[in-house]
């Protein structure tokens, strides 16, 4: 229902002819923590051997430095069904890679990261994902009937509870558009999601035009990961506007075994993935 809050907010602005502007705000400074972005995504039709895990440290909110990769860690993933171990090599820039990962649907994997003498762990199960049934473009869907949008459809399997993560990113854009999807209201149906950019001069957002390419990533998610994504995306899009819930700390699935108070950020996910891209005509 993030749409609903967003729309209420748009109305609020509309009614009042109110204005928004960027201001300087003093924000508190929390502790620096390790961020674990361990996304083992197995693209359908590939072997899935090549995988990367990103480690970085958090920074003060308004800091702009991007070079905060965490190096010197040891990173290991184990298939707990057959105890196969995959060691991820330190690339000395915060990236840890392997080319021997073996994804098996339904198997459970555990992650171990040792960084600055603290041991972090997490476990997750590899879920399959349904195929995208169509990718189309249109104008009459979406918020504005004169603007191009891309539509992604898939058929939700009727038998089980499914959770999805859908990611759109214009190839020339810096920021993606993220969707968390639960089949609660759409179970067994063909569902359709669109991405449309509405022009905004202030933010330098321009509409899609023919020739633009959008990359699409479609993943399955566990229920816990869905809950994590829901909060992450809602807060990313609207934290602080009057119709959003009070923003809160995100809790991922990684545990600091040695110093439980030093909770890491990020998430360990193992999923099947459908990857595609679409060029507007």
């Amino acid at each position: 229902m993030k749409l609903y809050h967003k729309i209420l907010f748009i109305f609020l602005l509309l009614i009042s002819a109110s204005c928004t502007d960027v201001v300087d705000v003093d924000v508190p400074e929390g502790p620096i923590r390790l961020t674990i972005e361990a996304s083992l995504d197995w693209e359908k039709g590939t072997t899935g051997n090549e995988q990367t895990i990103l480690l970085s440290t958090s920074t003060p909110f308004f800091d702009n430095q991007q070079n905060n990769g965490a190096t010197g860690a040891t990173v290991r993933v184990t298939n707990t069904n057959d105890n196969t171990e995959f060691v991820f090599e330190d690339q000395n820039n915060g990236r840890y890679t392997t080319s021997s990962f073996i994804p098996v649907i339904g198997d459970t994997y555990s992650l171990e990261v040792i960084y600055e003498n603290e041991r972090y762990t997490a476990t997750e199960t590899l879920f399959p994902v349904t195929d995208i049934s169509s990718i189309t473009q249109s104008k009459d869907q979406g918020e504005d009937d004169e603007v191009l949008e891309v539509n992604v459809s898939f058929v939700d399997p009727v038998d089980e509870e499914n959770y999805y993560f859908l990611r759109f990113q214009g190839r020339i854009d810096l920021l993606p558009e993220l969707f968390y999807i639960k089949d609660e209201f759409i179970n067994g149906n063909e569902a359709d999601f669109y991405y449309e950019k509405i022009e905004d001069e202030e933010d330098n957002i321009v509409e899609f035009k023919p020739g633009d390419i959008v990359d699409i990533v479609f993943l399955s998610a566990s229920e816990d990961y869905y809950n994590y994504l829901q909060l992450l995306i809602e807060q990313f899009e609207g934290a602080g506007d009057p119709f959003s819930p009070t923003p809160v700390a995100l809790v991922g699935n990684c545990i600091n075994e040695d110093n439980p108070d030093n909770v890491p950020y990020g998430y360990f996910r193992v999923t099947e993935m459908v990857k595609s891209s679409y060029t507007f005509e």
Binding site: G30, S56, S58, Q235, T246
Partner: peptide
């Protein structure tokens, strides 16, 4: 209100961290 007290990178975006309500 609750202001962010830090940020970290995830999914190619900057995620704000929050503390006390």
């Amino acid at each position: 209100v609750t202001y962010p007290n830090g940020q970290y990178q995830y999914e190619g975006i900057s995620i704000a961290s929050y503390s006390d309500r």
